[in-house]
Simulated scan of single mutants.
Amino acid sequence: MTSLLLATFNLMPDGEPGGEVLVPALAERGIDARWVQWDDEGVDWSGADLVAVRATWDYHRRLPDFLAWAQRVEAGSRLLNGAAAFAWNADKAYLLELAGAVATVPTVLLDDRSLVAGLSDALARWGSVVVKPRTGAGGNGVVVVESLRDERLEGLAAGPWVAQPLVTSVRTRGELSVYVFDGQAVSQVDKRPGGDEIRV
């Protein structure tokens, strides 16, 4: 039987909501899986055939630790997707790379030196601008502003950031996530925001 460790974090020791059905479903397919916290030093990652990152929702607050952990795990076991993919995906600057190959929302990178000028340019171009940390998860630190004098900028999370035009359909229709494996679309999730929210 293949052994699989499902990485999570301390606020979700049993995995993400619905995660309780994953372990029995995998067992039916001959996979012995269990949830473990990614930063638990007592876990023998090399003892597993596979390690899957599933619910490590504190990674953005502890990014250097998380990426170092991923490299250690990968050195001794098969880490699905791999440490390099996690490092690339953790910084939203990857959107600029993707823009050359697929349709993306226009994105501007901002740091402490370029924040005022860059945000001023973005506001002039787009009107309503979404500002979010370059490394973040779950919509934490995301603000929508329409002016440099917007009070929401006072509580802006630590940078660096990305700025993007507000895609108004996110508020009305939400967004669609499509899961592709081996070039085949296998599933989709329709994400709907609540009220005037943009986080889905």
Rank of each mutant, 00 (worst) to 15 (best):
A27Q: 11
D190R: 11
T8Q: 01
P13L: 14
M12C: 11
P17Y: 09
P64R: 08
V144I: 11
V131W: 02
T2W: 12
D65W: 08
A93L: 14
W88L: 09
D49G: 10
M12G: 02
R54Y: 05
E146A: 10
G100N: 09
K132H: 01
S120F: 09
I31E: 01
D40F: 02
L110E: 03
E28K: 08
D65H: 13
A75Q: 14
D121P: 07
L156V: 03
D150A: 07
G155T: 07
G159H: 05
L109C: 07
R78P: 00
S169D: 14
D65Y: 08
K132C: 02
R152S: 12
V108I: 13
R54G: 05
L11N: 15
A85P: 08
A48P: 01
T56H: 02
R171T: 05
P133A: 00
V53Q: 01
V51A: 12
M12H: 11
D39F: 10
Q188N: 11
G100M: 13
A68C: 01
G18S: 08
L6I: 07
E175P: 00
V36E: 07
A158L: 11
S177Y: 07
A122I: 02
G138S: 03
M12A: 14
D40Q: 01
A158H: 13
D32C: 09
G42E: 08
R134P: 00
V131A: 02
G183Y: 05
D49W: 05
R171A: 10
T104A: 02
R62A: 03
G159L: 04
G159M: 06
T135A: 11
P133T: 08
L95V: 11
W161Q: 03
W88S: 10
K191W: 12
N10D: 15
G47A: 10
D190H: 15
R78C: 07
G19P: 00
S187D: 15
R29L: 09
A99L: 14
A122H: 00
N10K: 15
I31T: 07
G100W: 07
A55F: 02
I31Y: 05
E175D: 10
W35P: 00
V170A: 06
A68G: 06
W57S: 02
F9K: 07
E154C: 14
G76Y: 11
L5F: 10
G194A: 13
T135G: 06
P106T: 11
R29P: 06
F181V: 14
R152E: 03
V43N: 04
F66L: 05
W88V: 10
I198Q: 00
S187F: 15
P64L: 11
A163C: 09
V167P: 08
P64K: 08
R173L: 15
G159K: 02
D65T: 11
K92V: 09
S177V: 05
M1P: 15
L123D: 01
E151K: 12
D58W: 04
F66K: 03
T8C: 04
G139P: 03
D182S: 10
V43D: 03
G195C: 11
D150K: 06
A75D: 13
L6Y: 00
V53Y: 00
A185T: 07
A137N: 13
V21P: 10
S177E: 09
T135N: 12
R62Y: 13
A52V: 04
T172F: 12
E16Y: 15
L123E: 08
E16K: 12
G174I: 03
R199G: 01
W69P: 01
